[in-house]
């Protein structure tokens, strides 16, 4: 672990009861969702992690508690450090607090979480779908959502599949 990261991680451990793992040099801090806002404020103001690179989620379906891990990647430009936070969320009615008041660019990423994983974001100013159409059903990146594979047409099954296809006409 980077020398500069050690005191930060120690502090997160002490104040928020975080669990720290390191894998291939990437430091990941596991944290309860109630402590997310306080921890990110601390990271931003005290340790100068000014850049929130990304927010994403991992779906561990069929596991239920926790079903999701929300992953936050923070960067400090002044100290050249990177830190990942992980927040476990249960499968039933998954909700996380919003980071939009701390990092402005959390806005779209959290909308994407809602769109792709169906994770509700408490206090988000504009929680609409981001990438999929407004009338879409389901949340595509969940593991229980099918890929939506269509059987390709070949010579032997051409007519059979052709019947099920809509065809654009003038």
């Amino acid at each position: 672990m980077d020398k500069q990261l050690q005191p930060i991680v120690k502090k997160l451990k002490k104040e928020f009861g975080a669990e720290v793992t390191e894998f291939r040099g990437d430091v990941q801090v596991l944290l309860a969702s109630e402590k997310l806002i306080a921890a990110s404020l601390k990271l931003r103001d005290e340790f100068d992690f000014a850049l929130l690179s990304t927010i994403t989620a991992v779906d561990y379906w069929p596991e239920e508690s926790p079903r999701f891990h929300i992953v936050y990647v923070f960067n400090s430009l002044s100290k050249n450090l990177q830190l990942m936070l992980r927040v476990p969320v249960a499968g039933e009615n998954p909700t996380i607090p919003t980071l939009t008041k701390v990092y402005k660019n959390a806005n779209w990423r959290e909308r994407e979480l809602w769109d792709m994983f169906g994770i509700k974001v408490d206090g988000h100013p504009d929680l609409r779908r981001l990438l999929m159409p407004d009338d879409w059903n389901g949340h595509p990146l969940r593991k229980d959502y099918p890929l939506g594979y269509e059987e390709p047409q070949f010579t032997f099954n051409y007519e059979e599949i052709d019947l099920s296809k809509p065809h654009g006409e003038v």
Binding site: P140, G148, Y149, K165, P166, G168
Partner: peptide, 12 residues
């Protein structure tokens, strides 16, 4: 071949 992409624009 997935949920997001129209499988051939001739569908439209």
């Amino acid at each position: 071949n997935n949920y997001a992409v129209v499988q051939g624009v001739d569908e439209i």
